[in-house]
Design a binder for these strands. Structure first.
Length: 262
DNA sequence: ATGGTAGCGCTGCTA
């Protein structure tokens, strides 16, 4: 099984890149974040033509998550199970059964400024993710929670920890909230495969040539239940997809994370 | 050199 997760920063702007990448990489499952699309305009047919079933959860403009699968896609669930009926849907979590694995695509809130209401909402969101796992899955099952977590798990997951003093993504509060999710029974398989740092990074700021200077962060994670983690044979970041290349549109500021098992 | 880029959508917000 080959599964990838990719924050594509607008699917509308990146559709041709995603299609070319699917053809070149042939993942069985692809989790997308920041589609910035409404469900009604998600390109279901274009992905079906490439052999992928899909599910999407978003309202357009911001956020938006999707799952593409060529090994079956069933029992899709959008949002948290305990979302208030009629509450504002944020388009940040979507799950589905794909080829015997429960796949969950997540886009954790950024948090903006430490201590702000957005930061507190991020911590609450991660707490709800843990609760969602407890209510809908079992740790002994095959589960992958992958996406943009907007948290660098350890100091080695940022290019220069001194540059992040007091910044979001690296605070003890965020890291503890992430650990609480993982303590349900999930393994960070990229870190498992690459015990040393720094990186491998998955995001680089568009500004100031950060990508070419290697100034990135590892915030896109593939968290796997232990039965999958024990069978992982590969867990890599596809840095090529972060490069400009010959295409007209710029790349996303994130690179895909690809894992293989079984 | 105290900024810089990108998307959305049309003004400034979000990342």
């Amino acid at each position: 099984m080959r599964l990838a997760t990719w924050n594509i920063n607008s699917l509308k702007a990146r559709q041709s890149r995603v299609e070319a990448w699917l053809a070149a990489t042939s993942p069985d499952v692809l989790c997308l974040q920041e589609t910035k699309l409404a469900d009604a305009v998600f390109p279901t047919a274009a992905f079906a033509a490439l052999g992928y079933e899909s599910a999407h959860h978003g309202n357009g403009r911001w956020n938006g998550v999707a799952i593409l699968s060529r090994v079956g896609l069933a029992d899709a669930r959008a949002g948290f199970r305990d979302d208030e009926p009629g509450s504002e849907e944020q388009g940040r979590i979507l799950s589905a059964d794909c080829g015997g694995t429960r796949v969950i695509s997540v886009y954790v809130p950024n948090g903006r400024v430490v201590g702000s209401e957005h930061f507190e909402a991020k911590l609450v969101w991660l707490h709800r993710l843990r609760a969602e796992l407890e209510a809908t899955c079992r740790p002994q099952d095959a589960v992958v929670v992958s996406g943009d977590f907007n948290v660098a798990p350890q100091d080695r997951d940022v290019f220069d920890i001194a540059r992040f003093d007091g910044a979001t993504h690296v605070t003890p509060a965020e890291r503890s909230a992430l650990v609480a999710v993982m303590d349900w029974g999930l393994v960070d398989v990229v870190r498992q495969t690459h015990p040393e740092g720094p990186g491998p990074f998955s995001w680089w700021d568009y500004r100031a040539g950060a990508f070419h200077k290697g100034e990135g962060m590892r915030i896109d994670l593939a968290l796997c239940s232990t039965s999958i983690a024990a069978e992982v044979t590969s867990a890599e970041v596809d840095r090529e997809a972060r490069k400009k290349g010959a295409l007209e549109t710029p790349p996303s500021d994130h690179a895909p994370v690809i894992i293989e098992w079984g």
